[in-house]
């Protein structure tokens, strides 16, 4: 320590000030990057805080009962979030049921089956599905997909499953085209690229030796994937699925177009419903009294908390996989 001080003392004055100036400049630059980085942290807390404050009147008035009340009556100022929460969870569940197997199929195709020259273009095309804005899925879903589903898939579901006890309840009622099922279907297309891309990336982390030894003892490609690749990458796949789920829960515009916007909970998947984000998109600018606005903000808060938890789990899963492959 004293050695460096002595050395600094012998440095000519001019260079000394220049070195000093540079030190200050360095400190400013470093401080700026650090400030903005902490700003990102604060941003998340600020979002949470502003939602809690905005939702306060509704939280005070309806308490925890908001979460399971089915009322949504702007005229009488009675609000409950259950229909929107139910719609959000069910549409996302449908999306995952469709998108997970298809996404894994795409990842399997890209890593095991696809000729090398086609890997990049096909991978890019699938990823472009994620680049198309939500509103475009909405307009396409409303004008193109919904009429097609109404005439083909939905009558088929009603005819095939409608008469079966228990299961039939899910496919009761007229095929309207718009509704929970259509929304789930659109969401499936929207989250497919996320699940496919993450799965493809984690499939590639499997050490070639593992794969080759399985092939070496005579396993088929399907067996290698089922017994080696998927068990090895299980954590990463769950991470990718959770990432897709996080996206599906918060999707707004596409769902708003096709869900039908009804605050009633119906057992049938063909019936119209609503989601948290669709309710916000439709009603927020029209909400005039304070309690209405606060109830909508409370819905937003619930959505934010749910997606935060899902995305945090996704991130932790993927981090665990990264940690392992780094070793």
């Amino acid at each position: 320590m004293s050695g460096t001080d002595a050395l600094a003392g012998r440095v000519p004055l001019e260079t000394g000030t220049r070195a000093g100036r540079q030190k200050i400049e360095d400190a400013i630059f470093r401080g700026a990057t650090r400030t903005f980085a902490i700003g990102v942290l604060v941003l998340l807390l600020a979002v949470l805080a502003s939602l809690v404050i905005g939702a306060m009147p509704a939280i005070r008035r309806f308490g925890i009962g908001f979460v399971w009340s089915e009322q949504w009556n702007p005229v009488k100022d009675l609000f409950g979030g259950l229909p929107a929460i139910y719609g959000t969870l069910v549409t996302s569940a449908i999306a995952m049921i469709i998108a997970v197997p298809v996404g894994l199929g795409v990842a399997l195709f890209l890593t095991e089956l696809c000729p090398p020259w086609a890997k990049r273009p096909i991978g890019t095309l699938v990823e472009l599905l994620a680049a198309i804005p939500s509103i475009i899925y909405g307009i396409w879903g409303l004008f193109v997909l919904a009429p097609v589903l109404q005439l083909t898939v939905q009558p088929f579901l009603v005819d095939t499953f409608g008469q079966i006890p228990l299961l039939g309840v899910l496919f009761a009622g007229p095929p309207l085209g718009l509704g929970i099922l259509t929304a789930g279907f659109i969401l499936a297309v929207m989250v497919l690229p996320f699940i496919a891309a993450v799965s493809r990336d984690v499939f590639q982390t499997v050490p070639p030796v593992l794969r080759e030894s399985a092939y070496g003892i005579g396993a088929t490609t399907a067996e290698v994937v089922r017994d080696i690749v998927i068990p090895y990458t299980r954590v990463g796949i769950v991470g990718g699925v959770m990432l897709g789920l996080g996206r599906a829960l918060g999707e707004t515009m596409a769902v708003t177009f096709v869900i039908g916007n009804s605050h009633r909970i119906k057992a049938s998947l063909l019936a119209p419903g609503t989601t948290i984000s669709a309710t916000l998109a439709n009603e927020f600018t029209e909400a005039v009294d304070q309690i209405y606005t606060a109830s909508l903000i409370e819905l937003g808060l619930i959505l934010f908390v749910i997606t935060f938890i899902v995305l945090a789990i996704a991130k932790l899963m993927l981090m665990r996989l990264e940690g392992r492959s780094a070793k």
């Binding site: 990102v40 979002v47 502003s50 996206r247 927020f284 937003g300 959505l303 997606t307 991130k315």
Partner: peptide
């Protein structure tokens, strides 16, 4: 936090 913001619902950002 950044990775969570990356996928956070954009409508909630609007509310904020």
């Amino acid at each position: 936090v950044n990775d969570i913001l990356l996928s956070a619902p954009s409508i909630v950002i609007g509310l904020f």
